[in-house]
Nucleic acid binder design. Sequence first.
DNA 1: GCCTGGTACTGTATCGGTACAGAACGCGAC
DNA 2: GTCGCGTTCTGTACCGATACAGTACCAGGC
Lengths: 370, 370
Amino acid sequence: MRRIELFCLKQTTIGGMARVTLQTIADMVGVSRMTVSNAFSRPNQLSSDLRDRILAAADELGYVGPDPSGRALARGTTGAVGVLLTDSLRDAFTNEVAAEFLGAIAAELAPTGLALTLLTSSAATDAVPARDVPLDGALVYSCDETSTAVAWLERRRLPLVFVDQDSKPGVPSVNIDDRAGARAAAQHLIDLGHRRIGIADSTVSGEAGLVDDPRAAVASHVHRQRMLGWLDALDAAHITPVVAQGLHSDVDKGEEPARLLLDRPAGERPTGIVCISDVVAYGVVQVARRLGLRVPDDVSVVGFDDSPLASRMEPALTTVHQDVAAKGRAAATALTRAIEQSQGDAKPRARHELLPTTLIVRASTGPAPL
Amino acid sequence: MRRIELFCLKQTTIGGMARVTLQTIADMVGVSRMTVSNAFSRPNQLSSDLRDRILAAADELGYVGPDPSGRALARGTTGAVGVLLTDSLRDAFTNEVAAEFLGAIAAELAPTGLALTLLTSSAATDAVPARDVPLDGALVYSCDETSTAVAWLERRRLPLVFVDQDSKPGVPSVNIDDRAGARAAAQHLIDLGHRRIGIADSTVSGEAGLVDDPRAAVASHVHRQRMLGWLDALDAAHITPVVAQGLHSDVDKGEEPARLLLDRPAGERPTGIVCISDVVAYGVVQVARRLGLRVPDDVSVVGFDDSPLASRMEPALTTVHQDVAAKGRAAATALTRAIEQSQGDAKPRARHELLPTTLIVRASTGPAPL
DNA sequence: GCCTGGTACTGTATCGGTACAGAACGCGAC
DNA sequence: GTCGCGTTCTGTACCGATACAGTACCAGGC
C-alpha cells in the first residue's frame, strides 16, 4: 500500500505504467543494474550475446536509453553548451552577421554531439537560465560585461569563451581585429582626399544624437574598438570627425545618424562616412539618396562586417570584411578545448585569438568631391 | 585516506577545494540540508533571519545555487526545451523566415525562464542530442518525418509540438494554411489571364529538373501542401503547369528552375510563375531579367512567405503572407501548455492550429501578355 | 489542562544513473 | 596443481538535489 503511494510521486508512472529504469530491465533479464548500464554505455564490458538480450528486453519495455538527467548528475556532463546572447535576442536572429555566427557554431558543434542552448541576459523572472540550466560550458557573445547572466556563468565555474568582448585574463577569447579594420576604413577615406568625415554609430543603451566626446560614450567592446580604430587614422590626419549615433533597436538603424550627418549645408556636410555596420551603412545610403546626394560622387560610405547585404547593395558597399564563419568555428573549437581541459587537471593559459579584418573596396567610395 | 581518494573522483574538488554542496553549507550554519535547500528554493518555508544567515554562508563559500543537474534529477524538470531543426541547420539561420521563427520562439520563451536548445537531426555520431540532452519538451520544426531524431523525442515521451509538419493524432501542431495560400497565389495569376503557368519548386533530397508528376515528388509537408494548393486552382481552370525544381541547398535556389521554365521560345514560355518561396522568386526574377524579360510585363512572379526580401525586391514581390512571428508565438505557447499538461494528469486532446495566409499583391504580377 | 492549528525546521527515501573495486570463471603456462 | 591473467558480471558508494511526512514549539480557545 505504502509502496504504491510512493510510486505515485512525481513521474514514477506514466499513464498508469510504472516508469522503466535500468532496474526494471535488470530484473526482467535477471542481471544486475550495472550490467544493463554497461549494455548501453560501454558495450565492450559484456558479451555481445547478453548485450543483445538486454537491448531486446529494453526495447520491449519501451526503454529509450539512460535518462539524461540521471546520467548528467552521475557523469557530471550534460551534452549541451550555452551561448549567452545580448539582451536583444531577436537581433541575434534578424541580424545576418549574428545569425551566421550562430549557424557556424551550431554546425561546428554538431559533429561533437553537443547541443547549443540559447541563453538570454534577461533577468526578468526568477528563473535564470544562465544559473539554472545544466550546461557543460558556454560562449558569451557580445554581452554587456556587467550583465548578471555573465556573472552567474562565471560563478558556476563553467568553461567559458568570450566572443566579441573585452578579453579577461583567465578566460579564452575570440575576437576580430575591429580596431585595425576601422583604422583601414577611415584611412581609405583619407587617402581618397576626404577631410570632412562623419561617423555613423548606433547605441544600445544611450540616446540618439550627435556625440561630443566619442571616446567617452558608453558602448560595447565592438563599438569601442571600432571607434578607436577610426580615431587612430583620423587623429593622425588631424581630422576631427562628426559623430552621430542612432538607436540600435531601430529597424532602420542608419536613418537617424545619416540625417544628422547629411542634412546640412554642402560646406558642412561630411563627404565621407564610416559606419559601425553594413546595416547602418545601408540606412545612410538610403538617406543620402533621398536627399538627392549621389554615392559615391557626393558622399562616400564605408560599412563594417561585409555581410551579404554589402554586396547586394547598389552601389556595392565598400566595407571591412570579417570572417564570421571562421569566428564561429574558432569559438566552438575554443569552447570544446576549454571543456576538455576542465575535465583534466591541466590548466594551461587561456588563449586569446584575434582574427584579421580586411578592407574590401567596392563602389560606395570614391575621391572626395572638389 | 580512502575518503580522500573518493573525494578525488570526478569533480568533487575544483582546484583543490572541496566542492560546495547544500550539505557543506548546512554543516557550516548548523542546520539540516533540507533547510538550506528551502532557503534557495522555497523562501517562505523558513524565517527570513535564518534564510539570510544561510545565504550569507553560501555566498562566503562561493556557492552559486542548487546544482542544475541534481535539481533536474530530483525535480524532473530541466528548464530547457529543444527545437529540432532540419538537417540543414545552417539554413535555419541563413533563411530569413526560419530565423525569424526561431527568434520569435526564443522571445516568447524568455519570460517563462525556459532556455531553447538547438537540436539537429544529424545522426552522424553516437552522441545524439535528441536522445541524450536533458529536456522538458521539444518543438519539431519542418523535419523529415522519418528522421530518427523525431523518433527519439517521441520515444522519450517528451511533450512535443509539430510545426510546419504533417500533424499527428496525439501531438499538438502549429501550421499555416499553406494550401489555401498557394491556391490564392495560383488563382491570382489565373484571374490576371495567365494560361501558361510555371511552378518553381526546390527539393531537399531529390534531383533538380523538370517534374512530370508533381503530386508524386518526394517533398516535405510544406512543399506538398503548397503544391496541392497551386494544383487546386490550376486544375479547376484546366491548366497543366510546368513544374521545375532546383536544389534546396543551392545559394541561388531560384536560378535552376527559372532557367528551365523561362529559357524557351516565347510561345512555350510560362507567362506566370508561382514559387515555393520568396528566395526562389528572387532567383526567378534575376534570371528573367538576365534573359531580357520584363517583370511583370513579360512574366509575372509570385513568391511565398512574405519575407523581408519580398518588399526589398524590385519590383516588389507579390507573395503569400504568413505571420512567422505569430507562428513562433503559437508554437512556444503550445509547447508550454503541453509541458504543463504533462505534469498534471489531464490529457486533453492535442490542438491543431492552422494560421491563415493571405495573398499580398505587389508589383511583380500583372495581366498576361497578349 | 487539553486540544487545535500554524510556523519553523528535520529525517528519510527517493530521483536514475555511473565509477570503481571486486568476484567468479575459464584457460594456458610452469 | 596452482598461478597469473583476461573476460564478464556484480556490489556498493556515490552524484546533488527535492518531496513529503514528521516533530517541536508556541499561541489561543474552551
